[in-house]
Design a protein around this nucleic acid. Structure first.
Length: 588
RNA sequence: GGGGCUGUAGUUCAGUUGGUUAGAACGCCUGCCUGUCACGCAGGAGGCCGCGAGUUCGAGUCUCGUCGGCCCCGCCA
């Protein structure tokens, strides 16, 4: 089919081109046939231009224009004309001109789409996902794709300017059962053996440091076979970074520079550096989260000392079991009904809390179901420590430390929503969470796991406790948190094979097992590994937050459903028997 | 693995206590209309009420199961 190359896109014509002959290619967006004259909004990625079919201007074009329908693909030749006085559309950048059509070429028909290609139309997400290629025609989705592209380009430019090399790492690699579940790929050439898709290029980027590449980055797909969430997909993209001869400060400096650049170019916002830092312990105790949302002012207060000698059984147990008693002050919520309080009790119980203690603050003190178990001094201390005023509500939770703090942290977020104290402005609440524990105790398997990953360096002062008291060892690990979302995480790594062996030992991994699973990295470290560290951004999450979306699906071109399927191409799917035979796989 | 929400024209939804022929808006089709831009006006087509059992004289509505979607907890080094 013959058609002319476009002279302009649908987003760029203005009064500057009045009188010019132009060619536009694009889609029929909206059609307004007034009988004597037909207006069509012609759409492409760049915008919308109104084209006009008028019989007095061109009789044949007007005849042809009658047959056009939504989403037809067309090429038109015409003349740019200033719109008549009073018919300008100020909502469109091209709204001061029309293109009077002289010739129209129909490039393709289109059946009526399953949903209208409009931004303000509510469509169920499953339908959008099934027809993702149509969903992506909507300008909102195109804006998101453009923003994602911009974030990548800003990162590439920034890293390039700072001497980072973009290096590709393998997608087929060895399975490392520490951490998330791997996606496995069966090997045809090697019977009964499997590749794994990377959860992150962690080991490769460390090996690149051993190679002396000094500064590496990669915008890279990662895969984790875990249950999904609004901000979690089985395959996702990281901006992966690693640097040699740096400590925590060196990583922070580079990352903060990048984040500043993001805000400058995407939000036109001047981010003040350095960013706030908060040790993990404080984050947990004040906000009940390792990714605290500091957009609003609401802090938890630990009350263990207040109840150190309490006779109230619940508190007494918490103190004796080295648990925690934490409180949250809900200002002005003293009038909450019993029904509301029961709802909040259910809320915390669902997360595993034994119950929720609440106290209404009155002029003459505390009113609460548990008041009779507390001394006057304890009551007064609660008021003083939480800074409660009459009309307020105090929540108290007690139990095992991390679990209880986490539940209170969720209650904090819930109360912030109910109290409507989360500002809707664009000012980012960015901070570093630092000093994570190196190890995390797992009740189920009764052993320590690496909280970050097994290559994370311990705090130098804590190495002495790695065997005797692993729980108190702090890691040189850090997360970057934006408005309550973890957008990046990293650490200074171990670069010494002896320390790495000690780490594996502390994790209960035998030297044989370590050799088998991580032999390459232990071996590499013997050959002069430089001190190094790095970080990885969750690109999807970052773009989601920049775009103001609440799901990363809306910033991914072809995402999966929350059960990990693709409604568009219907995967995962069954495969032919001969494929399985090639792979030496028998299904049960 | 657990909890919650959800499924009715192409789309978004309404549908009363279980009761006649399941409605609205948008979209689609036809006709009229020369300055619309959510064009307007007139007319029309369009339904396996996700699927399967059950209760009932009678089920979109009640019960059970099942499939899909969304959100959360666990999980996510």
């Amino acid at each position: 089919m013959k058609f002319k190359k476009r002279t302009h896109t649908c987003g760029e014509l203005s009064e500057l081109q009045i009188g010019e002959s132009v060619v536009l290619n694009g889609w029929v967006d909206n059609r307004r046939d007034l009988g004597g004259v037909i207006f069509i909004d012609m759409r492409d990625r760049y915008g919308i231009t109104q084209i006009v079919f008028e019989p007095t201007f061109n009789l044949q074009a007007h005849e042809d224009g009658k047959d056009l329908r939504s989403e037809y693909v067309i090429s038109i030749e015409g003349t740019v004309r200033k719109r008549p006085e009073g018919t300008e559309n100020v909502l469109l950048s091209t709204g001061f001109i029309d293109v009077m059509v002289e010739k129209i070429t129909l490039l393709n028909h289109a059946v009526t789409p399953p949903f209208q290609i409009k931004d303000d139309l509510d469509v169920n997400e499953d339908l959008r996902l099934k027809y993702r290629y149509l969903d992506l025609r909507r300008s909102k989705m195109q804006k998101n794709m453009v923003m994602r592209h911009k974030v990548c380009q800003i990162a590439r430019k920034y890293f390039d300017e700072n001497s980072f090399l973009e290096v590709e790492t393998p997608v087929l690699m060895k399975s490392t059962p520490e951490g998330a579940r791997d996606f496995l790929v069966p090997s045809r050439l090697h019977k009964h053996k499997f590749y794994a898709l990377p959860q992150s290029p962690q080991q490769y980027k460390q090996l690149l440091m051993v190679s002396g590449l000094d500064r590496y980055f990669q915008i890279v797909k990662c895969f984790r076979d875990e249950d999904l969430r609004a901000d979690r997909q089985p395959e996702f993209t990281q901006i992966d970074v690693e640097m040699s001869f740096v400590d925590t400060e060196g990583v922070f400096e580079i990352v903060e520079g990048l984040v500043k650049q993001f805000y400058k170019e995407i939000k036109n916002y001047d981010l003040q550096l350095p960013l706030k830092r908060l040790p993990f312990k404080d984050a947990m105790e004040k906000y009940g989260s390792d990714k605290p949302n500091l957009k609003f002012d609401l802090e938890m207060v630990t009350l263990n000392d207040v109840f150190a000698a309490s006779e109230f059984r619940v508190f007494k147990e918490a103190v004796e079991n080295k648990g925690i008693i934490t409180s949250l002050l809900a200002k002005g919520c003293g009038e909450y009904t019993r029904n509301q309080l029961d709802g909040l009790t259910d809320f915390v119980k669902k997360m595993g809390a034994g119950g929720l203690i609440w106290m209404r603050v009155k002029e003459d003190g505390l009113e609460a179901p548990i008041a009779k178990f507390l001394t006057d001094e304890e009551k007064q201390n609660i008021i003083d420590r939480t800074n409660a005023k009459p009309g307020d509500l105090v929540f108290i939770l007690s139990g095992p430390k991390l679990k209880t703090l986490t539940i209170m942290g969720n209650l904090r977020l819930e109360m912030a929503k109910r109290m409507d104290i989360i500002p809707k402005n664009d000012i980012p609440a960015l901070l570093w969470v630092t000093d994570f524990p190196l190890f995390e105790w797992d009740e189920e398997t009764k052993r320590f796991y690496a909280m970050h990953h097994p290559f994370t360096s311990p705090d130098v002062d804590d190495i002495q406790y790695m065997e005797s008291d692993p729980g108190r060892v702090k890691a040189r690990a850090y997360d970057l948190v934006l408005d309550g979302n973890e957008i990046a995480g990293g650490s200074i790594r171990i670069h010494n094979s002896e320390l790495q062996k000690l780490m594996f030992k502390a994790l209960g991994i035998s030297s044989e097992e370590a050799e088998e699973k991580f032999g390459q990295i232990l071996n590499a470290f013997k050959f002069g590994a430089p001190p190094h560290g790095g970080i990885a951004f969750g690109l999807d999450r970052l773009v989601m937050l920049f775009a103001g979306e609440s799901s990363i699906r809306d910033v991914m071109a072809f995402p999966k459903t929350s059960s990990g399927t693709s409604l568009m191409d219907d995967c995962p799917s069954f495969v032919d028997d001969h494929q399985l035979k090639d792979l030496h796989i028998k299904l049960r």
